[in-house]
Design a protein around this nucleic acid. Structure first.
Lengths: 205, 205
DNA sequence: CGATCGACCAAACGATCGTTTGAATCATAC
DNA sequence: GTATGATTCAAACGATCGTTTGGTCGATCG
């Protein structure tokens, strides 16, 4: 699964990403995880202290860059003379799309992200909120400035729905499978286009 | 939690609904479950055979009626001289809204439903698809007849996004909490209104 | 060379899991 | 009243979980 020239910590993180996506956090055992990573069972506690902290590090490895890319893209479109809702939505969605196209684990991580939304794990939610909550806040402000006809409550509702739909779509949660003739790349790019148009229309309604 | 005049099977189903919503299917142990239900540990295997089958029965208890109500509502709006997208969406969403307002476990069950979407449990997905997949098929046909400008692929994508957003919204997945001044009933009714308008606009785009 | 320290390993720890067992208890029918 | 079948019960089963232990390996340095 993971080439042997990766370090022990990297192999553990890679296997964790894989198994967390497939079986959830509680459903992935350290024994299966260390077996996939080809490391000793005790290596997880040695390098990461505990399984809980391993979960945190799996997120930190990807979210630092994803959040930076999203904020970069947002700043870039806000610097334009005119910024459409579609631009802001693209700034949010495209970095996640790029990550989902990454062949070295990024695609798997997007599914792990969806797991985090779904499981109500209070410890994990706190970690994510404390470390990456400011990203959502900045996007909410950008939307709000361009939707003055929506009061704060209604705006929050719609952003909430968009975040849910995005998570759902990016993680391939749906029952409908892509057509075999379409490559994964094309499949995901179309999903992003649909989602942006869908969300923009919903926000303006 | 559950009044003692309920039968053992009913107390088990009620406690299972509660704990599955809070901790997921794998995360809810039979020991905590039977403790909440005030029944013996062995009662689950005696009355339901296994934990897996208990999960199935928790769904069957609610989904039979929910599916019937959705199909009833769909047939009713399709019998009208003119049927809008909003009508069809309401036929899908309103029964779930009613269930989420039910104070005797229905509200909890909606969160269990969202768990089923989130967890990729193959066994459970197969059970749900085999028993209730025809409902989604009928709604897809109704949408498709009114959206001739969308090819099949695009239509499926949008319905998929709507189903995800609905699941997300109804289960109160979002981080944004409702204002304390709003009652739960008003809160959920507004969510349904927003979702219907949002989804209709997205489908027409 | 011997000492040192981080990395790795097999093995075991205590806890918890779903499930099974066999006896006790209850209601119902004769 | 007593036999019968369904239900409930305490207790234990084997399996698996995250974690810890104590020792071994191997590179680095004085």
């Amino acid at each position: 699964m993971e080439s042997p020239h990766f370090s022990t910590k990297e192999r553990i993180l890679g296997a964790a990403e894989e198994l967390f996506a497939r079986n959830g956090f509680a459903g992935a055992s350290l024994r299966e995880l260390t077996s996939v990573a080809k490391v000793n069972l005790a290596a997880v506690n040695y390098h990461f202290g505990s399984k809980d902290n391993l979960v945190n590090e799996v997120f930190r490895r990807r979210l630092d860059e994803l959040s930076a890319q999203r904020l970069d893209a947002l700043a870039r479109v806000l610097a334009q003379p005119e910024t459409s809702l579609e631009d802001i939505l693209a700034a949010f969605i495209h970095p996640a799309l790029l990550l989902s196209l990454d062949t070295s684990g990024g695609a798997t991580f997007v599914r792990v992200l969806a797991r985090a939304y779904a499981e109500h794990n209070e410890r994990l939610r706190k970690f994510l909120s404390e470390n990456y909550g400011h990203v959502l806040k900045e996007f909410a402000a950008a939307f709000g400035a361009r939707l003055p006809h929506l009061d704060k409550e209604e705006l929050y509702w719609r952003i909430d729905i968009i975040a849910g739909a995005l998570t759902y779509a990016m993680a391939d949660f749906g029952v409908i499978k892509r057509r075999a003739s379409l490559s994964d790349k094309v499949h995901r790019e179309r999903a992003a286009e649909h989602l942006i148009r869908f969300a923009a229309a919903g926000l303006r309604a």
